[in-house]
Design a binder for these strands. Structure first.
Length: 112
DNA sequence: ACTCTGACTATTT
DNA sequence: CAAATAGCCAGAG
């Protein structure tokens, strides 16, 4: 097992994202203590696909843009999933992103 | 052991 | 205000 700790944490947090909510890579990274490793969060999400059970579609960049939609295999699968959860997505961007934003550092207390 | 890359973010031009 | 650049960490070749 090595330190997949990082990935593991990311997976756990991502898994705890409530239905109809979205968060940003940076928010997760910050929650994990590695605020500057937002990219790593995305990398972890990449593994989350094969890992499964990870609602990566609820994780977008800090702008609410579906940056990782291309990694979802499909074209607009990510957008469709979000819309299916009641999140308005226009032009690959989450509308009222701030309103749907879910900050793990705040909602999940400060530790996992 | 070294280098490159990447689903980001903040800053500067 | 929009676009370009740099900084950043950690995994994979």
């Amino acid at each position: 097992m090595k330190d997949q700790n990082f990935f593991q944490k990311v997976y756990e947090v991502a898994r705890q994202i409530p239905y109809g909510r979205v968060t940003s890579y940076g928010a997760i990274a910050r929650y994990l203590g590695t605020a500057r490793s937002a990219r790593m969060v995305g990398w972890a999400m990449n593994g989350s696909i094969k890992n499964g059970d990870i609602p990566a579609h609820r994780v977008v960049n800090r702008n609410g843009l579906l940056s990782g939609k291309h990694h979802f295999g499909g074209t607009h699968l990510m957008q469709q999933l979000l819309e299916n959860e009641g999140i308005e997505v226009i032009d690959d961007q989450v509308v009222y992103f701030q309103k749907h934003f879910w900050d793990p550092s705040v909602e999940l207390d400060y530790y996992i």
